[in-house]
Design a protein around this nucleic acid. Structure first.
Length: 382
DNA sequence: GCCAATGATTCTCT
DNA sequence: AGAGAATCATTGGC
């Protein structure tokens, strides 16, 4: 029977026959013995065990002395090794089920999680525990392997706590986000001025109420809303206008008259301007126009959204038609309605047979109908 | 409180 | 991607 087996017998008959202690924990040869003095060792072990059993009955000083005696005992390393082994054996069956569990996939969703789970606090705590265990290993059967395992347990715990923290933070962010989205849904009506600007644009481009991106940006800036809101507004407006043209007649007339008045002012100013400054042959102005005589686009031809007049001979050439249009509009707004109750001035010329605008030959850009094809002006430019 | 108006969202289509 | 259409959700007048 080898040394370990004998010790185990002394400890209660636990057999470790055939099991070698690993990791440099092999039993050293007893001091001063050649391995043949079995009875003497038994006696030593008995002494140690007796000291352990009676230590609680001693005074503190005596206990310290005994502790020192234990530490210095020649059989201490051997006993320590065996106790560690027993602990290892019995502990595995208990821990096995708990510690070797695969990590919760929800807690460990990404491999990178490990990288961000080693904060300074974890390291400090680990070092502290390691020192403690090393200190205690003088009197308790704590093997380096166990210390290692403890460290990994601590790391795992830190990891799971951090992941839980992350999860709860994510949840909180999601809640805040949904609240923000809800708040966004709590809409505010646009200001009167903004609605006016949008309506002016819509009715002055009734033949093709599809503002370009630049025009949308311009409108958004002027109305202090976002480009998406402009898009939404035009989307809604087109649909609702198409669905109930009659209902929008009054509004259309209103904006037509408004635009026409400002257009007339601009035209008059342009006439004066052209008479004094531009005696040369006027541009034909017809090239590239949308040729929609009754379209609301007529009114924006003289003016952009800010009411700035376009200057030059081209404008002067159209003055008479603008004045005629103005007269027409005023007569319309004075109460004229056709048999259908629809003002012919604002019948949806751009609408095709299917009620769509897309058959209109006008481009979706906001270039004024009176401007030439190469013009850089936009109706919404300042 | 009802209801029309209206801004936003979602789905479908081209 | 952008438009049309339907729908949702809120606002504001009565």
């Amino acid at each position: 029977m080898d040394e370990q087996a004998r010790i185990m017998q002394a400890l209660g008959g636990v057999s470790l026959a055939g099991h070698s202690v690993q990791g440099g924990m092999a039993l050293p040869p007893p001091h001063g013995h050649d391995g043949t003095d079995g009875d003497g060792r038994k006696q030593d072990i008995g002494d140690i065990l007796h000291q352990i059993m009676t230590i609680t009955d001693q005074s503190l000083d005596e206990a310290q002395a005994k502790k020192h005696g234990l530490n210095c005992h020649r059989m201490k390393p051997a006993l320590f090794s065996v106790l560690c082994e027993i602990k290892e054996k019995t502990g595995l069956s208990i821990r096995g089920a708990q510690e070797e569990d695969p990590p919760d996939p929800q807690l460990m969703p990404v491999s990178s999680a490990q990288n961000c789970l080693s904060p300074q606090a974890c390291n400090e705590f680990t070092t502290h525990v390691m020192n403690l265990l090393r200190e205690q290993s003088r009197t308790r059967p704590i093997s380096p392997k166990e210390i290692e395992r403890m460290v990994s347990i601590i790391h795992r715990k830190f990891s799971s706590i951090q992941m839980q923290l992350k999860q709860s933070t994510c949840e909180a962010v999601m809640i805040l986000r949904s609240r923000f989205l809800d708040a966004r849904r709590k809409r505010r009506n646009f200001s009167k001025q903004a609605t006016e600007i949008l309506n002016e644009y819509f009715y002055s481009h009734l033949s093709n109420p599809y503002p370009s991106e630049e025009a949308k940006e311009e409108l958004a800036k002027k109305c202090s809303i976002t480009v998406s809101q402009v898009s939404n507004w035009f989307g809604n407006k087109r649909i609702r206008y198409k669905k109930n043209i009659g209902k929008f007649q009054e509004e259309a007339n209103l904006y037509a008259a408004k635009t026409a008045v400002t257009a007339a002012h601009a035209a008059a100013a342009a006439v004066q301007n052209s008479q004094t400054n531009s005696p040369t042959t006027p541009n034909s102005g017809s090239s590239g126009s949308f040729n929609l005589p009754n379209s609301g686009d007529m009114f924006m031809s003289m003016q952009n959204l800010n009411g700035d007049s376009y200057q030059g001979a081209q404008v002067g050439a159209n003055v008479q038609s603008q004045v005629d249009t103005l007269r027409h509009v005023i007569s319309q707004t004075a109460g004229y309605n056709d048999a259908l109750g629809v003002n012919p001035m604002y019948s949806p010329h751009g609408l095709n047979g299917n009620g769509g605008w897309h058959d209109a030959t006008t481009p979706s850009s906001v270039i004024s109908p009176t401007e030439g094809p190469g013009s850089v002006h936009s109706d919404t430019s300042n």
